[in-house]
Design a protein around this nucleic acid. Structure first.
Length: 425
RNA sequence: GGAGGGAUGGCAGAGUGGAUGAAUGCACCGGUCUUGAAAACCGGCGAGGCGCAAGCCUCCAGGGGUUCGAAUCCCUUUCCCUCCGCCA
């Protein structure tokens, strides 16, 4: 959540930041609400103070056996005024809160300014585009021919965008999850968690998906539950409404399926596994002290890159510009894999620092050296997202005969299988 | 799903209409003592908001009500526990 104090104390900066993000924010209206809220509170608190004092006196008088009915009568009308004012405060509070919830985070000073993805800055790339002595095919052709992907049958039961993996395809999915979790736990120092895959709206608001992304989530009205669009939601909300008493930083990693309606994205880059309503992902989440959050972001990014390097897949790292930054992020790197069969880059990871934006919404704090409760900084990154990772493995590993060679790092996770080939007829 | 019982500070646990975040114990922090530690003793110790400040206001699971006044009485929601039923 946006901090109202930023607005009070650094109004010009806030206006500039929102302009850089290409977001319209009615700063004047919010400032007016803030002022009104404060003056109402002063007024009602003074009345409450009067009532408390009067009630105390009545109690003392009654104990002494005196009649206090006249004074009780007088205080009653005070109570009515308080009630009316309290309601007014609540209304203003709610309006202010709603307004603040809809303001995106302030971008970090290092974030390049720009309107859209064309202004994103390439930070580095790793590996080389693989060359083929034949015309490489897209994964949906290879996968269907191998019998490891079955889009038609999946669509019959669930509609388009829900993949069905079979045989070595299903095994590859499971192997990748295990491989990535093992790396993060054994080499990168994360604790593995396994979470609920549905969350209440308040949890979803905590990480910033609600209210803005409501249309992009699957919702179960009977139980007021959302299917998680990313493990970021349940994992970050583990410490919701808490003052964390464990030492920071805390590193958590989790596997989860992710559900996304992708409303408005129909027909766009959505062939095969490129953009699906359900995919698997291994996520990394950090809770850190504010002063360390940007070092932690770089480490997080490296952890995600490690996965891709181990798999020998060519990728590039982009630093998102102000206009392309997601709602809650202050800074964000995307990692894109090269998919030679489509001659396209596919986003498989997004590593973000939220500073205290999510922590403020979800009310996650720790005690600083002076013992005062302070909001933590939260970060998260995909480490990494499946479906598209599978796309890159298939398209990069394809041979002229339609088989797919697997990266060596996966062999132990595939029972020694090094290559997926057409089943003997 | 049915019946009953609960929810108080970091934890345990008093408090059932009248000053006050709220007895007590544990934990924690500071001090005395000690070569050092422990023990003992002394002191401190919840969160949020408004205010330049002094200070004031709010919070005893959430919401609503009764009252001059609610942790305490009433209604309601959520969660937990016990028993019964069902079940991977």
């Amino acid at each position: 959540m946006f901090d109202i104090r930023l607005l009070r104390e650094r109004e010009p900066e806030v206006r500039a930041a929102m302009k850089a993000r290409c977001v319209e924010v009615d700063v004047d209206a919010l400032m007016a609400l803030d002022g009104k809220r404060r003056s109402l509170i002063s007024e009602v608190e003074q009345l409450k103070n009067e009532r408390n004092t009067a009630s105390r006196d009545i109690g003392i008088a009654k104990k002494a056996g005196q009649d206090a009915s006249a004074r009780q009568q007088a205080v009653r009308s005070l109570g009515e005024r308080i009630k009316a004012l309290d309601e007014e405060v609540r209304d203003v509070d709610e309006a202010l809160h709603t307004g603040l919830l809809s303001i995106p985070n302030m971008p970090h000073a290092s974030v390049p300014v720009g309107q859209d993805e064309s202004a994103n800055r390439e930070v580095r790339s790793w590996g080389e585009k693989k060359s083929f002595d034949f015309d490489p095919k897209p994964h949906w052709e290879i996968g269907e021919a191998l019998g490891i992907l079955d889009f038609d049958r999946a669509a019959r039961m669930s509609g388009a965008g829900f993949p069905l993996y079979r045989g070595a395809g299903a095994r590859l999915e499971r192997a990748l999850i295990q491989f990535m979790l093992d790396m993060h736990v054994n080499e990168h120092g994360y604790e593995e968690v396994s979470t609920p895959f549905v969350c209440h709206s308040d949890a979803t608001r905590g990480t910033g998906q609600l209210p803005k992304m409501a249309e992009d989530m699957y919702y179960i009205p009977a139980d007021d539950l959302y299917l998680i669009p990313t493990a970021e939601v349940p994992v970050t909300n583990i410490y919701r409404e808490e003052i964390i008493d464990e030492p920071l930083p805390i590193y958590l990693t989790a596997y989860s399926p992710c559900f996304r309606r992708e409303a408005g994205a129909a027909g766009k880059d959505n062939r095969g596994l490129n953009r699906v309503h359900q995919f698997d992902k291994v996520e990394m989440v950090k809770f850190v002290e504010p002063k360390t959050s940007y070092e932690e972001l770089e480490k997080l990014l490296k952890n995600a890159e490690d996965v891709l390097q181990r798999l020998g897949l060519m990728y590039r790292v982009l630093e998102l510009c102000t206009g392309d930054l997601s709602f809650a992020a202050a800074k964000c790197y995307d990692i894109e894999l090269w998919a030679p069969g489509q001659k396209a880059w596919l986003e498989v990871s997004s590593c973000s620092c939220f500073e205290d934006f999510q922590a403020r919404r979800a009310n996650i704090r720790y005690r600083n050296k002076k013992g005062k409760p302070v909001h933590v900084h939260t970060l998260n990154g995909s480490g990494v997202a499946l479906a598209r990772l599978v796309v890159a493995i298939i398209e990069n590993g394809q041979g002229a005969d339609g088989s797919v060679s697997l990266p060596e790092a996966l062999w132990p996770y595939m029972d020694g299988c090094k290559r997926i080939e057409r089943k003997a007829e």
